[in-house]
Amino acid sequence: MAKYCTQCGTQIEESGKFCVECGTPVEQSAAVGQSVLSGKRERVLGSNKSKSNVSLFIAVIIVPLALGILIFFENLPALSNPIIDEQPLVAESVTYPPVPRQMKTIETRVRENKIILPLDVVLQKKFVAFEFNNNGRVIPLLAYVSGEGKVITAISMCEPCNSTRFHIKGEQLVCNSCGTTWELNSLDGLSGACQGYPPDAIPSIVVGNEIQIEIAPVINWKPRV
């Protein structure tokens, strides 16, 4: 296995003690690596919530069962997102052109633990970005009118790439950073690296000209990465 100097990147002989280019001791290179990595593996394995005793059960019972169910359901449509299912219709079906429609930033109000968006503005702009400031922790949100005419409200984040900006192109929602695409109506992944991380839908209701979002699920939202 080849070794490389951490200071200048020069390849070092397997038996070499110093980098021939810059003289950095090889032990130091290894030590730098260890200190940067220290504690990380434990933190990753520490997020093992419920594996140990149930793993055999999972292996013997659940996995074959789940596989059976999966095979059985393979030709049925994907499970839908229950939050999106419940979202209200606010328009006739909407057809987006195949040119990117970027988010427009809008102002919102907070009243009685609800974030209030003006429905007419959302209907006019179609795809809006706004924020909720929870004591200094700014949570990015978005709202758009889906192809079916539903208003969909969600946390505006694609966690793997830390992007908070998206655009709509035809029937797809696209992450501005990684280019991952999701189906606009369902937020099911279509292509790209981060398909498991569409904007995380948050419930909202429509009352008169207001789209109302309860702040509790927004405050309690945790990144999925």
Binding site: K40, R43, V44, L45, S47, N48, K49, K51, P160, V225
Partner: peptide
Amino acid sequence: NPEQRADFRKEY
């Protein structure tokens, strides 16, 4: 598991 893999990405 997916939770651990998410932590893996965050850490590494």
